[in-house]
Amino acid sequence: MEMFTKVLAQNGLVTAFAVVGIITWFSAQMSRRLTMGRIQGSAIAILIGLGLAYYGGVVTGKEKGLADLSLFSGIGLMGGAMFRDFTIVATAFEVQASEARRAGLIGVLALFIGTVVPFIVGATVAWSFGYRDPIAMTTIGAGAVTYIVGPVTGAAIGASSDLMALSIATGVIKAIMVMVVTPYIARFLGLNNPRSAMIFGGLAGTVSGVSAALAATDRRLVPYGALVATFHTGLGCLMGPSVLFLATKYLFS
C-alpha cells in the first residue's frame, strides 16, 4: 500500500488524470440517476472539486486546496494556469468566426461594465463596513472585479496584506458563485447563444469562473465566453490602480 501511494505521488499528473476521470464518472452517474439529467454532470463535478479543495485546505492549512496533499500534487499542474489556458485556446477551434465577429462591440461594452460595476459595489460595501480609507476601498473593490485584479491593484497602491487577502477572498467567492449559480439562471441570462455567451464573458469576469460556468451550462459556449473574459483581468489590472483608484481618492479623501 505504501509503495502504491508512492507511485501515485511520484506520477502526479497521470494520477490527476485518473482522479479527475473518476470524479467525472461519478458526477455523470449522479446527474443521470439523482437529477434525471437536469443538473449537468460537469456542474456536479465542479462542485465536488470545490468540496475536495475545502477538504484539502482544512487538512493541510495551505492555499492550494487538494493540490497541497502530496498524493494529489498533480491536480495543481493539471488545473494550473498553463493547462487551463492551453485547453481554452484549443476550444477556439470550434468557434464560428462569423458569430464571434458579430458580437465584438457588445463584448467590449460588457467588459467595461463588468469592471466598473463590481468595483463600485465592492468599494461601497467596504465603505459601509467601515473601510473608509481610499486604499482599502479600492483594494476590496478591485477584488470584486477578479481575484487577480485585487492583489495586483492592492500591491500597486500599497495596501496591507490582510486587505489583499480580503480582496482575494472577495474575488474567489465571486468566481465560485459564477461557477455554481450560472447553470440555474441560464434562462434568465438568455445564455443560449454565442452572442450572450460573449456578453457573459465580459460581465461575469475571471476566465476560470466564466469558463467553468459555461462548461456546466453548455460546453459549446465556452470558447465565446472565454474569448472575451480573457481581457477582463488585463483591463481590471489596468484600470484598478489608475482611473478607479484616482476616482475613489478624489471622492473619499
Binding site: G49, A53, Y54, K64, I176
Partner: peptide
C-alpha cells in the same frame, strides 16, 4: 479542447475555498 472540462474540475479542486 475536449480536455477542457476535466481541467476545470482540477482547477476547482485547488481553489482556496477555506480563505474564501
Amino acid at each position: 479542447g475536449a480536455m477542457y472540462i476535466p481541467v476545470v474540475v482540477a482547477m476547482a479542486a485547488q481553489q482556496n475555498v477555506v480563505v474564501a
